[in-house]
């Protein structure tokens, strides 16, 4: 098993923490993991991305230029990484603010209206969990309960009261994700 993922969007969308929750759940299932951020923008604003690799073998390079899955959460990231998805791979994106939609026909394309959905929930901070839920619905690489454990491990203690809300976000994402048929 080897899954190479890029998650990209704006700093502040929770991209890096989405990646670390996924990584932690991978560790619980005895996977090798690597989490490589584009550091700098997460604190300073701008476009942030993280490469996560989950594997049953020792991971060589944490830096790669093609991916099995791209989770793209703004137009810049979609423009930059659409062509980096390997043929047969997966592209998951949020339509919010997107003016040019993905066009590739050799990969699976899924949409999750996470920003819109997060606006309806008790906190818009559930955005990244809705996206993660959507991804795990398409590729159930790790067990749901291990994602929750990963959430507990990565979330600071003072935010633990938000776990039920995040769990709700994950489930919501699983419900609303839909495949896009092109051509």
């Amino acid at each position: 098993m080897n899954e190479e993922i890029i998650i990209a969007g704006f700093g502040g969308q929770g991209i890096l923490s989405m990646g670390s929750i996924l990584s932690y759940s991978g560790i619980i299932e005895n996977r090798e993991v690597s989490w490589m951020p584009s550091y700098g923008p997460e604190m300073r604003g701008g476009t942030a991305n993280v490469t996560v690799i989950l594997s049953s073998e020792r991971i060589s390079s944490p830096i790669i230029n093609t991916y099995d899955t791209a989770i793209l959460l703004n137009q810049q990231s979609l423009d930059k990484f659409e062509n980096s998805v390997r043929p047969g791979g997966l592209l998951l994106y949020d339509t919010n603010g997107i003016t040019r939609h993905p066009e590739r026909t050799d990969i699976s394309i899924y949409q999750v209206e996470a920003a819109a959905e997060a606006g309806k929930m008790a906190s818009t901070k559930t955005f990244n969990m809705i996206v993660l839920g959507a991804y795990l619905k398409i590729k159930p690489l790790v067990k749901f309960e291990n994602v929750i454990t990963g959430l507990k491990k990565t979330l600071p203690e003072r935010h633990h009261h938000l776990i039920p809300l995040n769990e709700e976000g994950l489930k919501r994402g699983m419900e609303i994700v839909k495949e896009v048929q092109l051509g």
Partner: peptide, 10 residues
């Protein structure tokens, strides 16, 4: 360097 310093692994 920044790669190994910033990346997370087990």
């Amino acid at each position: 360097d920044g790669v190994i310093g910033q990346m997370m692994e087990k």
